[in-house]
């Protein structure tokens, strides 16, 4: 995935069963952000793999004051890339199990 300067990781082990998972997001490279960024630390949140879209979560982060509006797309992309990887891993897991 492209290096957006924003890192998203699983905040808990993925049991491949729940649609809602805990994710943790933090900024690794503030220079890659367009807007001013105040170092808040890591932001943990829950995300529903089936019902939610990364853009909505990114927008909520902006509205909560974590990021500037101009970085909504960057944050959304970082979440989308991680979510895609989690979904891919789950599908692979299921196909291996048969």
């Amino acid at each position: 995935a492209e290096d957006t300067g924003v890192r998203v990781e699983l905040a808990e082990e993925d049991d491949c069963k729940k649609s809602s998972i805990a994710l943790k997001l933090w900024v690794e490279d503030p220079k890659k952000l367009k807007g001013k960024y105040k170092d808040n630390g890591a932001i943990e949140f829950s995300y529903d793999l089936e019902k939610e879209v990364p853009e909505d979560v990114a927008q909520e982060m902006v509205e909560s004051g974590f990021f500037h509006e101009s970085d909504t797309k960057t944050v959304a992309k970082s979440i989308r890339d991680r979510v895609a990887l989690i979904k891919w891993r789950r599908e692979r897991n299921w196909s291996v199990k048969g």
Binding site: A42, V57, G65, F66
Partner: peptide, 27 residues
């Protein structure tokens, strides 16, 4: 420690905590 919580009006909860040093050194 410095853990805080922000609840968005849509109901989502954001828990903010320091980034673990091990994570920062990963890259």
């Amino acid at each position: 420690s410095s853990i805080s919580q922000v609840v968005h009006s849509a109901g989502r909860r954001f828990i903010v905590s320091p980034v673990p040093e091990s994570r920062l050194q990963e890259k």
